[in-house]
Design a protein around this nucleic acid. Structure first.
Length: 847
RNA sequence: GCCCUCGUGGUGAAAUUGGUAGACACAAAGGACUUAAAAUCCUUGCCCUUUUGGGAGUGCCAGUUCGAGUCUGGCCGAGGGCACCA
């Protein structure tokens, strides 16, 4: 073939791979396994560049591991429950199921056009009853284990999506999907007891040495472990209340105690419900928005009760009890003891209400008297004004002593507190997994019996109702268990539940008996390499880790493993943003370039484009490039090459049409070169045996293997270009055909993971039918007879010479002195000493 | 406010352990081929010098070292996470 036609070649190989089931995998205990998983997509309609990047990175790895003779599991599925389907269906009078299935079939075709090495026989879709049936079984299992409970509490209510959000789904006080300002609402909700595993989730992070540090730190902060103690403060002034419990990390500062503050939602608020002052205060509290800024700037306000709290260290010290707007009900016990001198927040509150500010910690290096004045002192130091704690150093010594004393006095005990709260899983939506729970006519609940699962979603229902559409499905809601009628729960599960265990399902996707097959997961799990966006650092990754712990809880058969041994978080795909003169966004295909300047056309007139910063592709800014069109124009291999080039995979990448064109041209140039090489190989020439190619090939094996292991995929692209640049010159030399062929075959295998279609075709041309195996560098070609020695004078590079390898030091020095440049420099100087780095460098110190 | 990451040409970036800074590519300028264009190929890239050559140089300032993009301390700047968490 003379010219390379990617359309014909790519389609040919994609069909062959499909027909031969090239990427089908089976459990094989004689082979080492490699589970390569990319985060599965939501079937929104079309794939976007982010998917292209994500799945190309994963595919390069999967193909590389396959060539290394691993048994590679590389599956794909669909995270297909969720809001967009429901909204789209509502708008267009469709069934969410039809909308979703149509999108899946479109996106599947698009993914196939990328030439991904996926075992499509393992395809799963979370919205199919065959999938969520098992999820309902898990619900029953976790319910039996006591890991699921129902409680009424304040929830994050998204007024646009009309549903509850988990804490993790509230970003900046706004819903993660709708962007609406989240409201507080009291509702009865189902919860997963994720907080039961706080400690395991935290300590498990230490073992994940193939995870980015960044993600581990984010999870660590999210779990938020604090060491401290709980203190029971005796209360005076109430007939029905003896004490209020607080959590503190600074019991050492108890002698600086000047008020006790509780949350407006604290149980004692029931005594004040009818108090007009309190009502006013509560109203004032609710005015504070939930956004970042409003919270940070919110004034500390309080409502003074008639209660008095007693300092456990000093019975005579009595302080007022306040309700305060800065105390959170769902952390600790919803109550704090205020020490204004050593906590900025307490300091501000004390200033406002004229409460005493008593200094009890003095900075270590301060010799004079010390008193807190303009701001709280929160650093280390020595205890003062604190009776038996005086002179102790804080935090360590003083805190230990304080806790010891509190325990002696039976006023409290040491305690560890976590920030992590239980995972609210109820959603008031139709398009999700039904919660397998029923209620009797008295409102008592029980789980649906196993043999009556799955609870299937009703189809073709009216979605244009207020609130949850399932609330209006009276017929569907009515279910008979053992002859008795019950009403089904209408909340559905948070879609993050669906994705918390899909990696297990891929191991035995068609097993009808259970969600996972023990034999299969024992072989395949954990996922060796998981690849996806960093935006899931907390939500999805923490939930998945929890799910493994929950399934393993009270179940010795289950594998107790972290789900994802390796994690890689890739960066986003960005593009310049364009605006017209009226400040409206322009899409890249409305923009054209003349003399390096950007224009757009309006009514056949040229207008200048306002070019903005490069930002991650999003529909709202119109800076999106449709992968399908790009693949059609340039071919999958060219797109793969470009999306991997330029930037390291973990960083954002700038999409550039010129870069894309360059990759396309490269494929064609490569093919021209390939034909030249092919001719030389076919000529069967007995040329001379030049070693350069052997050396190059074996060095390349080293480089590409190293870069693959380190995810330096952008460097691999550079290695591929280098290879081309080398071969294009080298091919003019007089090589023996066999030697050329031998090296060329190895080089092709090295490039295969990035450019699978062209390389498959190249192997076809060479009539090479044997199994492809990743080459191993031959050390005899890596050892060179000559080496380049850098010559430095006083640490600065002055010259470079080529000499025999492993020369004696004194011979090296003699050779160097003969170098013209060097002899000029050192002739009239004193050579004080020299540093020799064997086979690399000599540094001459002169004066 | 706390925590984390990152600052290298016009641009995206390379540089296994401290040892040739700028690989590879994009863009630009000049040139070759061509009647011309496209395509392709070559050269250049900061400062001084006609050339030879020399010098500065990895955000800034110090330090360690024969030698620092890489290590240490301080500062400046950008990005990300958390956010009244007691």
């Amino acid at each position: 073939m003379e010219r390379y036609n990617f359309k014909i070649v790519e389609e040919k190989w994609q069909k062959l791979w499909e027909k031969n089931k090239t990427f089908k995998t089976k459990l094989n205990k004689n082979k080492k396994k490699f589970y390569c998983l990319e985060m599965f997509p939501y079937p929104s309609g079309k794939i976007h560049m982010g998917h292209v990047r994500n799945y190309t990175i994963g595919d390069v790895l999967a193909r590389y591991k396959t060539l290394q003779n691993y048994n590679v599991l590389h599956p794909m599925g669909w995270d297909s429950f969720g809001m967009p389907a429901e909204n789209a269906a509502k708008e267009n009078n469709l069934d969410p199921k039809d909308w979703t299935e149509k999108n899946i079939s479109v996106m599947k075709e698009q993914l196939k056009k990328l030439g991904l090495s996926i075992d499509w026989d393992r395809e799963i879709s979370t919205c199919s009853p065959e999938y969520y049936k098992h999820q309902q079984l898990f619900f029953l299992e976790l319910f039996k284990k006591g890991l699921i409970y129902k409680k009424e509490n304040y929830v994050n209510w998204d007024p646009v999506d009309q549903t509850v959000l988990a804490n993790e789904q509230v970003i900046d006080g706004k819903g993660w999907r709708s962007g609406a300002i989240v409201e507080r609402k009291k509702l009865s909700q189902w919860f997963f007891k994720i907080s039961k595993f706080s400690d395991e989730l935290l300590s498990g992070l230490d073992k994940l040495d193939k995870w980015p540090n960044k993600v581990k730190i984010m999870q660590k902060n999210w779990i938020g472990k604090s060491f401290g103690c709980e203190i029971d403060f005796k209360i005076e002034g109430s007939s029905s209340l003896n004490s209020i419990k607080c959590f503190t990390t600074r019991p050492d500062t108890l002698f600086g105690f000047s008020f006790l503050a509780v949350s407006a939602d604290h149980p004692i608020s029931k005594f004040y419900e009818k108090n007009i002052g309190f009502q006013k205060f509560k109203q004032e509290c609710s005015k504070t928005g939930t956004t970042e800024e409003s919270i940070a700037q919110a004034e500390k306000i309080g409502f003074k009760t008639d209660l008095i709290a007693i300092n456990p260290f000093d019975q005579n010290e009595k302080v007022p009890v306040y309700f305060a707007n800065f105390v959170l009900m769902d952390y600790g016990f919803g109550a704090v003891f205020g020490c204004p001198a050593h906590d900025q927040r307490d300091f501000e509150f004390a200033k406002k209400y004229n409460l005493p500010i008593k200094t009890v910690v003095k900075p270590r290096d301060m010799k004079d008297e010390f008193e807190v004045k303009d701001e709280a002192y929160v650093g280390d130091g020595i205890m003062i004004n604190s009776s038996f704690l005086n002179g102790l150093s804080t935090p360590n010594e003083a805190i230990s002593k304080a806790i010891e004393t509190i325990e002696e006095k039976k006023s409290g005990k040491q305690k560890i507190n976590f920030r992590l709260k239980d995972w609210g899983i109820s959603r008031q939506r139709y398009w999700g997994c039904p919660i397998p729970v029923v209620y009797d006519d008295k409102g008592n609940y029980q789980t649906v019996p196993e043999d009556q699962l799955p609870v299937k979603l009703p189809e073709n229902i009216n979605l244009k109702t207020t609130g949850n559409p399932l609330d209006h499905q009276e017929e569907w809601r009515t279910i008979t268990i053992k002859g008795k009628k019950y009403k089904l729960e209408t909340d559905t599960l948070d879609t993050f539940v669906d994705s918390s265990w899909y990696y297990l399902r891929f191991c035995s996707p068609t097993d009808t008996s259970y969600g996972y097959n023990l034999d299969e997961i024992k072989y395949w799990m954990p996922v060796d390499q998981y690849i996806g966006g960093v935006e899931h650092a907390i939500l999805h990754l923490l939930y998945s880790r929890f799910f493994m712990l929950a399934l393993g809880y009270k179940n010795d058969d289950f594998i107790s493993k972290e789900p994802f041994e390796g994690l890689f978080t890739q960066g986003m795909v960005c593009h310049e943003t364009y605006k017209d003169k009226n400040n409206n966004w322009l899409s890249p295909n409305e923009v054209f370039t003349e003399d390096g300047k950007n224009f757009y056309k309006i009514n056949d007139k040229k207008e200048k484009v306002v070019v903005g910063s490069s930002e991650s592709m999003s529909k709202s800014k119109k800076n999106v490039i449709d992968p399908e069109k790009i693949i059609e124009t340039y071919g999958a291999d060219a797109v793969r090459l470009f999306i991997l080039s330029d930037s390291p995979p973990e960083k954002d990448i700038q999409w550039s049409e010129q870069g894309m064109v360059a990759s396309y041209k490269f494929i064609n140039k490569f093919w021209t070169l390939h034909n030249k090489i092919l001719e030389k190989i076919k000529s069967n020439k007995k040329g001379s045996n030049i070693n350069d190619l052997n050396v190059f090939t074996n060095k390349l094996i080293q480089k590409i293997t190293f870069n693959l292991e380190k995810f330096n995929y952008n460097v691999i692209v550079a290695n591929i270009y280098e290879t081309y640049n080398f071969l294009v010159k080298e091919i003019e030399k007089d090589y023996e055909s066999n030697m050329l062929k031998e090296n060329y075959l190895k080089i092709l295998i090295l490039i295969m993971p990035v450019l699978p279609h062209v390389i498959s075709e190249a192997f076809n041309d060479l009539n090479y039918k044997e199994k492809l195996e990743w080459p191993i560098a031959d050390s005899k070609y890596l050892e060179e007879k000559f080496v380049n020695i850098v010559i430095q004078v006083n640490g600065k590079k002055k010259s470079l010479i080529k000499i025999e390898k492993d020369l004696e030091d004194k011979d090296v020095i003699n050779k160097i002195k003969k170098d013209e440049k060097i002899s000029n420099i050192i002739s009239d100087k004193n050579l004080l000493k020299h540093i020799i780095v064997k086979n690399r460098l000599v540094n001459l110190i002169i004066k």
